[in-house]
């Protein structure tokens, strides 16, 4: 009898596999061990290249590559169609995707077509005593964790938040990459991409040191960025700074941005709203600088500095050796 399978969507960007997909593979491998299931990475594209091997090194027992020139770049409807067909044929127990823009766009549509349950942005994954996938979904910012199962249908689907699990190199026997030629007869996509502008940002959730700028230092963003540079830290921002277009969304920290895993985080002019806090919950040491002694951010800080950031920043720049 064939072993049951946990499938993991391998998101391409386009020349690499997104870290979150490799992170999920690592966790899936552990769950597979626990429940005697094998882990299958699923990738779509024009040519498999060597990306399949990378997935095999990070926990996949096997990789399925859905091949068609139409699948070269992501489209909701073509990807949904291709995945729907193969999933219906092989019916994995579990299908996990990264909670990225693409993963969420795809997972919602696909789960509805498959008529199955989907959990969002999960921060924990386990197999419960009855063998079901138990996923932890944060709610109300991140005050609570709802532990959710899907028993009515398969696959049990979840999108997994980036930066929660760590990717691991796992020694393997010999995994295989199964290439399936799809021969899709024309695109079903009704959305056309006219143009695209992307910059590459290293993943903020992996940074060791982060300096975060909030609304309170909106006028001093350049100085905060310079400070991050001097101290070998990455710059992060609260949501309003990204909303106003003053920094890329890729720098946003919080429930709709990145969750940091930094050893040290320095926070300037952030009030500590519910939806900001999950972004810093996993950091080792938190220093906050805020003018308002009553600010909520201080409840979630190790060092509380009540001060005008515009007075502190120049001194730190000077001490850090800025000329």
């Amino acid at each position: 009898m064939n072993r049951k399978e946990i499938w993991v969507y391998l998101e391409r960007n386009p020349e690499e596999i997104e870290d979150v997909s490799l992170e999920i593979l690592g966790r899936a491998k552990e769950l597979g061990k626990k429940s005697d299931m094998s882990v299958v990475g699923v990738m779509l594209g024009k040519e498999p290249g060597n990306l399949g091997d990378i997935a095999l090194k990070h926990g996949a027992d096997k990789v399925i590559f859905l091949k068609d020139s139409l699948l070269e770049s992501y489209s909701t409807e073509d990807y949904t169609k291709a995945l729907f067909e193969i999933i219906n044929k092989r019916m994995p127990e579990i299908f996990l995707l990264g909670a990225t823009y693409q993963g969420r766009d795809l997972a919602g549509r696909l789960s509805a077509r498959l008529r199955t349950g989907l959990t969002a942005n999960v921060v924990s994954l386990d197999i419960d005593t009855d063998g079901y996938l138990l996923s932890g979904v944060p709610g109300y910012g991140s005050k609570v964790l709802a532990e959710i199962i899907c028993v009515r249908n398969k696959p049990q689907m979840s999108t997994v938040r980036p930066g929660i699990f760590s990717k691991k190199l796992i020694p393997i026997k010999a995994g295989i990459v199964e290439v399936l030629d799809l021969d899709l007869q024309g695109s079903v996509s009704r959305v056309r991409v006219v143009s695209r502008k992307v910059e590459k940002h290293p993943d903020l959730s992996r940074a060791e040191k982060v300096i975060i700028a909030g609304n309170g230092v909106e006028g001093n963003l350049d100085m905060v960025a310079k400070m991050a540079d001097i101290f070998g830290a990455r710059l992060g921002v609260s949501r309003p700074i990204a909303d106003k277009g003053k920094a890329s969304r890729e720098l946003q920290v919080g429930s709709t941005g990145y969750s940091l895993n930094a050893k040290l985080v320095l926070i300037f002019g952030v009030s500590g709203a519910e939806h900001f806090l999950p972004g810093i919950a996993n950091c080792q040491t938190v220093i906050s600088i805020n003018m308002d002694r009553e600010s909520d951010i201080f409840e979630y800080s190790d060092y509380c500095v009540v001060a005008d950031a515009s007075k502190i920043i120049p001194i730190l720049l000077r001490e850090g050796g800025d000329r």
Partner: peptide, 12 residues
């Protein structure tokens, strides 16, 4: 519904 909330716990 296809999903069931088994329990709520405090987070963070």
């Amino acid at each position: 519904s296809y999903t069931i909330v088994k329990r709520l716990t405090e987070y963070f």
